[in-house]
Nucleic acid binder design. Structure first.
Length: 303
DNA sequence: AAACCGTGCAACCGCTGGGCG
DNA sequence: TCGCCCAGCGGTTGCACGGTT
């Protein structure tokens, strides 16, 4: 998130440096970023190996592509994953498993790398706390019946608070919850992913075995709350099975099972507290991104 | 104040699949 | 059909940072 930290490294000294020919590795310098941005601005992207050479970058095409897509692209969004995005990620991962790029397609401005990192650092961490595997039924149940409903509640609450600011639902003194370099904007109360039909047929089994169980149930959960318009597309998934009764507390579900409800409840609270305890959107601008030192520096160079 | 540790994330690596000659 | 090149994907690594001891 903090792109500035990379600037503190003399990347020429980065381990693995220049031992294979002329190629540089490690963190990108401001000069390299500028060269890449300028080149793409003038010639467009694609043909990455050629691009790297023509732009005078001593980088592999891969490296250039990654840098552009994950960091320099103007529409890339940085900052905390919002509650809505968390919901989407949980849901989409339950459908598709570790298909990060596919998941990222439904989160405008987010990169597969970012989502992957989010999953590994947050979600897997909580699975570990529960001493269960992220692919286990236990963990999926925890998501479905605890975290998802809580996320939905929080989103609803913040949406309600937002509309209470003034009758029009516009933001008073509060900054809009989510912005992206001034381009696209996603309001707190609406996330409308357009699921394409690609998801539905398989019904199970990404190649890595992370596929979820009965698919769209997660989304059903928050559909029931009526705060999302999740479009499955007319031609897409078969009608989902009747959703389980929604409860803000999961007690009912776990009487019958052997799940460690207390641990889940606690973990759920911790998770939501750390990500959403403070409206993640409010400190969006405090993180790296447009307006931060590094982007300011880049802008100065480009102007 | 210093050492240590956990976390987050940028960047790299290896693999796969598609396009083309 | 085969081999090469390239783009893209998922997994992994390494490091800076912030918090804790």
């Amino acid at each position: 998130m903090d792109g500035n930290k990379d600037r503190q490294i003399d990347s020429g000294n980065f381990q693995g440096g220049d031992d294979d020919g002329d190629l540089r590795r490690g963190p990108w310098t401001v000069e390299e970023d500028i060269a890449l941005i300028n080149y793409i601005a003038n010639h467009g992207d694609g043909r990455w190996n050629l691009l790297a050479r023509c732009a005078g970058l001593k980088r592999t095409g891969k490296s250039c592509r990654l840098r552009w897509l994950n960091y320099l692209r103007p529409d890339v969004r940085r900052g905390n994953i919002t509650l809505e995005e968390q919901l989407l990620i949980l849901d989409l991962h339950s459908r598709w498993g570790n298909r990060w790029s596919k998941i990222a397609q439904h989160l405008p401005g987010r990169t597969d790398n970012e989502i992957k990192n989010y999953w590994r650092t947050r979600v897997q961490k909580h699975a570990k706390q529960l001493k269960c595997d992220v692919n286990s039924k236990q963990f999926k149940d925890t998501m479905r019946y605890l975290w998802i409903p809580r996320l939905v509640e929080r989103i609803q609450a913040s949406a309600a608070a937002t509309t209470a600011v003034d009758g029009n639902g516009s933001y008073g003194s509060v900054a809009p919850p989510l912005m992206n370099n001034g381009s696209d904007f996603v309001s707190t109360s609406q996330v409308t992913p357009s699921y394409a039909s690609e998801n539905s047929s398989s019904g199970g089994g990404s190649s890595d075995g992370t596929q979820g169980s009965s698919v769209s149930e997660l989304t059903d959960c928050y559909n029931n709350f009526g705060c999302f318009s999740v479009g499955y597309g007319q031609d897409t998934a078969p009608p989902p099975p009747p959703p389980p009764p929604m409860q803000s507390s999961a007690v009912g579900f776990f009487n019958e099972g052997e799940l460690d409800f207390q641990a889940m409840e606690q973990s759920s609270c911790e998770w939501l507290a750390e990500d959403g305890g403070v409206d993640t959107s409010e400190n969006f601008w405090s993180t790296a991104g447009p307006g931060t030192d590094y982007f300011w520096l880049l802008q100065q160079h480009l102007n």
